[in-house]
Design a protein around this nucleic acid. Structure first.
Lengths: 234, 234, 234, 234
DNA sequence: GATGAATGAGGATTCATTCAT
DNA sequence: GATGAATGAATCCTCATTCAT
C-alpha cells in the first residue's frame, strides 16, 4: 500500500559516509532537544536525507541514539587511554583519570545527560555493549587503585569498587547542576580536590604508625631514665 | 419528567482525605509504571475518583508527581533528623547519615528513581521547593563535617561540598544497579566502608604525630638535664 | 508530551449512543474501502467524533472491525433463527437455511467479504467469539440434517460435517463472483437447486426403472398373446 | 587512477535461470510470510540478486506473485490431467478429481492461501489468465459430470455449475482450518465421502425403492396369471 | 546488465487536560 | 463538587519502486 515515488535527484553516497552524516545530525538534534523531543524528521532534514534512509542503517530511533552515544563514548575512551599512557605513579594516574573525565563532561554535557538519563537508566542497559564499554572505562580507574595497593601506596583493605563509585559518583553529583545548565564547575580545582581527597582517604597508614611506634619506644626509654628500668604500674 | 439516566452516586470526602487518597494512588502508579507510563486515568481509577477531580487539587500531572515526591522526601528527612538527634561524634553522625540514606533508598527505590530521573533532572528543579528540601537535607551532612573541622577531627582545608558530592554521589553510583532492578547492595557494609573511606580521607593527619614528636623532644631535653645527653637508644 | 487542547464545543452523548454512531460509521467505511484502505480518520470524520474518542471504546482498528462484524453476524443469526422457528420438515428447514444465508450475502456482500478475507483468515479467528458464533450458526444446519436422519428421511451413514461444508462452501463458491462485484446470482433459483441437490443427490434413479421396463416388456408380450400384437396405445 | 572502491563482482546467468531462481525465492518467501509481509528485499536476498534486478523481469511485486502462483497452478493442472488420463467411468473420474485437488492442497497449503486470499479476491482476477486457468481446471470436473449425464448415470436436470461449486466450495470449506494451520483433514476419507455424497446424494433410498419393489412383485403376480408360473425370458 | 542507495507518503495510536452536565 | 466524554496534535516506521553509477 506504500506509494512508491523515488524523487528524481539526490546525491548518492557510500554507505559509511552517509552514516557519518546521519550520526552527526542525530548527535546535534539529540543534544539540543533531548531524546524524546528530537524527531526523526528533524534529524533527516538536518542530515539532508529522507527519513526512510535513516532506517536503512538503524533499526529505530533508539538504535540511532545508542550508536551516537557509543561513538562518542568510544572516542572518549580512546582519548582517555592515550592521555593516560605516559603517566606514571598512582596519584598522577588518578589525577589524569579524574581530569579527563571532567574534561569530557565539560566538552559534551548534553551527551552526558543523554547517557545518564536515556541510556544508563534503561532496562536493557546492563545487557548493552555500552554497559561493557563503561565497565572497561571504569576498570581503568580500578586498575590504577589496584596498582597503588600493589606498590604499598594504598591501604589494601580498601574496597576498590567503592572508590570507583565515590570518584565517578562524586563527579556526577558535582557536575549535576552544570549538566542542567545551572552553574559551572572549576575543572582543574575539582580534579585536584577530588584527587587529594581520594588519595588521602586511601593512603597507606604505613609511615605514621611506624614513626609512632619508634616514638613510643623512645618515650619508654626516657621514662626508664627517670625511674629506672622495670618501673611501671605492673 | 426526569431523564432515565440516574446520576451516579459518589461519596463526598473532606478535601484533605481525598487528596491523601489521590496521592497514595499516584505514588503507587508512578512507582510501578514510572512517570511517563503512568496515566492520569490509572491514578484516578486507583484513587476511586474521576480524572477531573484530580485537577481540582493539582494543576497538572507534574504537580501531582512533585507533591508525591515532596511528601516522601519530607517524611524521609523527618525520620532522618529524628534518628540523628541523639547521635554524638563526627564519625557516628556521618555513619548515621549514610546509613539512613541507604535505608531510604532500599525502602523506596522507585521513588528514588523518579526523583533522580524526573525531578532532579528537570529544568525547573533548581527553582523548586524540592531543591530547597534537598539542600536542607545535604546540609545536615555538611554541618556534621563542619563540626568535625571545628573539633579538629577533620582537616580544615577540605572542600565540604566535595565531601557532600562524594558521599551522595558515591551512594548513588553504588546503588544504581539496584535502582534498575539489577543486583542489590549490602546496606550495612556499604555504610561502614563509605564512612571509613570518608573519615580516613578527611582525618586531620597533622596534630597528633607532630605534637607527640614535639613532646618527646621536650621530654628528652628534660631527661638530658638530669643525666646528661646521649642516654637512650644510641 | 501530548499537547492537550480540548476543543470548546462538542455534543456530549451517552456511551452507548456514541458507540452505535462510531460502529455505524465504521461499518460504512470498512464496507466501502475494505479494512486496510479504511482509515481511522475517515471513520472518525464520518462518525462526527475525534479519532481519540474511538480509542475510548475500541482498543484498536481491528477491535473495531471485529465489533462491527460481530454485531452484523449476531443480527443475521437472530433473523435467521426467527425465520426458521415456524418451519417444519427437513426439506423446508434446509431450504430456509440456504435461502436465508443467500439473502444475508445479497444484503451485505461487503461485510461478507470482510468476514471471509479479514476475520476468518486471521490467525486468531479460531480463538475468537466470532468463531463460536459461526459454529452456532452452522450447527443449526447440522441439527436439521440430524433431524432428517432421525426421521429416516436422510441416510444415516452420511457425514454431517461434510454436508455442512458442501452447503456453505458451495454457496460461498457460487457467490464468489458477486462478492467481488462480478456478476450476480439468482437468489431463489440457487436456493432451490442447492436444496434439491442436497436432498436428492444427483444420481440417476437407474436400477429400478430398468427393472420396470423389463416388466413392461413382458406384460406387453403376454398381452400380445391375448389380443394380438399391435394392440395398445394406438 | 581508479577509485579504491572495487566493483562488486556478480555472476551473470542466462535470463531463464535467473528468473527461475527469483521465482523459487519468491515462492518461499511468499509462502512463509504471506504477500504483504513478504518484502522484495527478502526475496532479492534469498534469490541472490539485487532488488533492482527483480524489476528487470517482473513489473512489480504483484506480477511476481502472479507468476509464482501461475507456475504452481499450471504444474498442478498438468499433474492433474496426467493422473486423470487413464481413468474411466464417471465415478472414478470424479473421485480422481477430488482426490487430486485435496492432494494439491495438502502439498501446498500456503500457495492455496495466497491464491484464495490474494489472487482470487482481487478486483482484477476475473480478467487475469489465472482466472482462465482456473476455468479450465474446474471445467474438467464439469465435463466429467456432463459425461455422466450423457451416459445416463447422472440426472440430466442437474445444474452442473452448482455441482462444481459444491465440490470445490465444499473442499475449500472442509480444509479451511488446515489452511490456517488449525487441524488437519483425512485426505482419503474426505475424497471418498465427498465422492459418495455427490454421486448418491443423501436422500434415504429406503421408501421409494421398497414401494417400487412391492409394485414389481404385484405386477409379476399379475403376469403369472396370464402365462403361468416360470414364464418369461429367465 | 546489475546494482543498491535513496525515496517519502501515509496512518494508527496516545493521553493530559477541559468543561458541559 | 464531581463527573467522564471528548479532544487532536504529534510521530515513528515501512517498503515498493526508481535510476545514477
Amino acid at each position: 500500500m506504500t506509494t512508491a515515488t523515488a524523487k528524481r535527484s539526490f546525491v548518492r553516497l557510500p554507505r559509511e559516509q552517509r552514516m557519518r552524516e546521519i550520526e552527526a545530525a542525530a548527535r546535534e538534534v539529540f543534544s539540543q532537544r533531548g531524546y524524546d523531543a528530537a524527531s526523526m524528521t528533524d534529524i533527516a532534514k538536518r542530515a539532508g536525507v529522507s527519513e526512510g534512509s535513516i532506517y536503512k542503517f538503524y533499526t529505530n530511533k533508539r538504535d540511532l541514539l545508542l550508536t551516537v552515544i557509543r561513538t562518542w563514548y568510544q572516542s572518549m575512551i580512546d582519548e582517555f587511554m592515550e592521555k593516560l599512557s605516559g603517566v606514571e605513579g598512582t596519584r598522577a594516574q588518578l589525577q589524569t583519570v579524574i581530569w579527563q573525565h571532567l574534561k569530557s563532561i565539560k566538552a559534551n554535557p548534553d551527551l552526558c545527560r543523554l547517557f545518564f538519563l536515556e541510556v544508563r537508566s534503561a532496562d536493557d542497559y546492563f545487557d548493552s555493549d555500552l554497559f561493557h564499554l563503561n565497565r572497561d572505562y571504569t576498570h581503568v580507574l580500578m586498575d590504577i587503585i589496584q596498582g597503588g595497593i600493589d606498590r604499598g601506596e594504598i591501604r589494601p583493605d580498601i574496597s576498590i569498587p567503592l572508590v570507583r563509585d565515590m570518584v565517578f559518583g562524586g563527579i556526577e553529583h558535582r557536575v549535576s547542576g552544570f549538566l542542567v545548565n545551572r552553574g559551572d564547575f572549576d575543572h582543574d580545582e575539582t580534579a585536584n580536590q577530588l584527587t587529594d581527597m581520594v588519595m588521602a582517604g586511601m593512603a597507606a597508614p604505613a609511615k605514621t604508625p611506624n614513626g609512632l611506634e619508634a616514638l613510643v619506644e623512645r618515650l619508654e626509654r626516657v621514662a626508664d631514665r627517670f625511674d629506672g628500668p622495670g618501673g611501671g604500674e605492673g
